[in-house]
Design a protein around this nucleic acid. Sequence first.
DNA 1: GTCTATAGCTAGATAGAC
DNA 2: GTCTATCTAGCTATAGAC
Lengths: 185, 185
Amino acid sequence: MAYTKVEQDIVLEKLMDVFRSVGYDGASMTDLADATGLKKASLYHRFPEGKEAMAHAVLNHVANWNNAQIFDILVSSGPVEERLDTALKSIDTLYNGGRVACILRALSHGRAAEIFRSEIAEIFGKWVTAFAHVAGDVGHDPQSANRLGESTLIRIQGSLILAQTLHRPDLFQDALRDIKTDFLK
Amino acid sequence: MAYTKVEQDIVLEKLMDVFRSVGYDGASMTDLADATGLKKASLYHRFPEGKEAMAHAVLNHVANWNNAQIFDILVSSGPVEERLDTALKSIDTLYNGGRVACILRALSHGRAAEIFRSEIAEIFGKWVTAFAHVAGDVGHDPQSANRLGESTLIRIQGSLILAQTLHRPDLFQDALRDIKTDFLK
DNA sequence: GTCTATAGCTAGATAGAC
DNA sequence: GTCTATCTAGCTATAGAC
């Protein structure tokens, strides 16, 4: 019997945790098997193409989550402040308040970057577009809106790096606050 | 005969290139040997503790470079705009206009993070302190100066990630411009 | 679908000649 | 100091029983 979507989603979440915390090269099949509770041969049954296919599946899962929890929220109708609050809350949860790394960052460096760059670029692009959409809603012209979208993503990624390296999750919290201010000022 | 400092510095630069482009886990001894033009056994002669010692030496080299080219410049006397221009120019060169990754970022993720975090945190801290010093010079109170120092580093790291993943070095250039504006407005 | 067992390879690291 | 040759451990990946 085929595994259910829920079971596969749980496996994807576990795989994501490994890639996110130790990186693509740092994630061994043994690590991935241990994290999922499956044996290596069972993982290969689910992902015949091996580690690369696992990371692709994880990225696809992440893209779906982002579409539902962040992009759709940001471009929906309703008060701007409410949309921002909901999306920023999701982002805060996603990164556990600044205490965990970004899976996109983990897969966008080193040899992994060559493999996954286009997928990650697409997700990054959607973040920019979604935030630029909000910027347009609060009166920015298209060019200025786009720049605000870009600087929002820059703030998130940059603050995550500092938050983790300096053990200062408050830097991520500050960044989320600054982002909201940028849009509402 | 012992190798000269220049020879060793060249080796460190080559090692840095490898770590920066493929990450710590992604850098094999074969990669490192090929890049330096030395054989593996010769690398072990220079770095008896192996790969970890090489990365430590690279970080030490980077710290020295940063001290001379960035921190000392920023906290020197002289016109603020001149200091900023010189430091930002160095940063632009360091990251080849936004086209190469940051060695600190490369070593601050995954299993490498546990090993090198404190060294990297110290370098990051100096960046923040140096930029905060400039912020103080242009009239910010200590708390506000510190936040400006932090957001400067966030801008640099975040824009580097986007610049490389999206193949958009202009995002890094924009960030450098925004940084200057932040300080002079 | 999941497992045990293992093949084949490359990793980091070392011995010892020169 | 640098080299060739080699060791062992851990890697990705597969075969085949259940």
